[in-house]
């Protein structure tokens, strides 16, 4: 059964009652265009085509009928919370798939919105769960993923890489990073990349070369991934945004696994979580120091 009637009713009610000024969700797009995202990270169909979904920004209750939700709604709408134009319309409600929900929990843990400024119209799979506060979203997320979810295919590829000599790994990554054009679609699509001035834009001194050449591309891709360590919820938005199909999910999954293994951290499950980088423990691993 389509979940959209109750989603539309709730969205209209929140707007009508003045509890929110804006509902961010998905609408159908007649023209097709980019189909479901490909978070696998390796590739995407060059001629994407097919029934697309587009973000919808609804400010009037009578327009709530435009909202839809189904498996094709793969864009991570939480990324809009960094747009000043959107932040100016808080309190707002956001249609939240499981992936969006985890991003919202992670952003709440990082104090990216005030309490009460955000409600979720939450989904689990394609089942509509109703209007949720962030704490309830976190409970849903924990329920949906009691064990960390990792793409087994990515795990296999990481194991394969780990078995190679360092030089071969360097060559493999350099070949992939060489295709980066520095369009920063990865950064734009990521809800967690919310720095008002990104490190690549800090130019006194220019820490990360803006040239789309080996050194700049390596530094950029390392810093982007590292800034997400312990924060990335593995939604895949960066990888599916990358026009060049760079395997960004290999980096993200690797670091998420390291954060879990070394520090028992799983992002996006606890709105009261302390930031991994920014806190410390005297018992942290010391074995790599001489």
């Amino acid at each position: 059964m389509s979940p959209t009637p109750s989603l539309r009713e709730d969205a209209a009610r929140l707007l009508r009652e003045g509890r929110v000024k804006l509902v961010i969700g998905y609408r159908a797009h007649a023209g097709g265009g980019q189909g479901p995202a490909v978070p696998e990270g390796a590739c995407r169909a060059p001629l994407a085509g097919g029934g697309g979904r587009r973000p919808a920004f609804i400010e009037e209750a009578h327009r709530a009928g435009e909202l839809v939700f189904d498996g094709a709604c793969s864009q991570n709408l939480a990324a809009y919370l960094k747009k000043p134009e959107v932040r100016a319309r808080m309190p707002l409600a956001i249609v939240a798939s499981e992936a969006v929900g985890r991003s919202l929990v992670s952003l709440a843990a990082e104090s990216q919105f005030a309490q009460g400024a955000l409600l979720a119209l939450a989904f689990r799979g394609e089942r509509y769960e109703g209007v949720k506060e962030v704490e309830e979203l976190a409970a849903l997320a924990r329920e949906a993923a009691p064990e960390p979810r990792r793409d087994p295919d990515i795990g296999r590829r990481l194991a394969e890489l780990a078995a190679w000599p360092a030089q071969r790994r360097a060559e493999w990554w350099s070949a992939r990073f060489s295709r980066c054009t520095r369009c920063y679609a990865c950064r734009a699509a990521c809800p967690g990349c919310y720095c008002q001035r990104c490190v690549t834009e800090r130019n006194v001194p220019q820490w990360v070369s803006t040239a789309a050449l080996g050194h700049g591309n390596y530094a950029w891709n390392m810093i982007r991934a590292f800034h997400q360590a312990g924060r990335c919820t593995l939604c895949g938005a960066c990888a599916s945004a990358c026009p060049q199909g760079l395997p960004l999910m290999l980096l993200n999954t690797f670091l998420a696994a390291q954060a879990a293994e070394q520090f028992d951290v799983e992002a996006g499950l606890d709105p009261a979580a302390k930031p991994l980088i920014g806190t410390w423990d005297p018992e942290d691993d010391n074995s790599f120091f001489t």
């Binding site: 587009r54 973000p55 920004f57 747009k83 134009e85 369009c183 679609a185 734009a188 699509a189 026009p243």
Partner: peptide
């Protein structure tokens, strides 16, 4: 209104 979905990257331009 037209620009609201735009996330501000350079994918289109590049």
């Amino acid at each position: 209104e037209l620009s609201l979905p735009c996330l501000g990257c350079a994918a289109c331009a590049y």
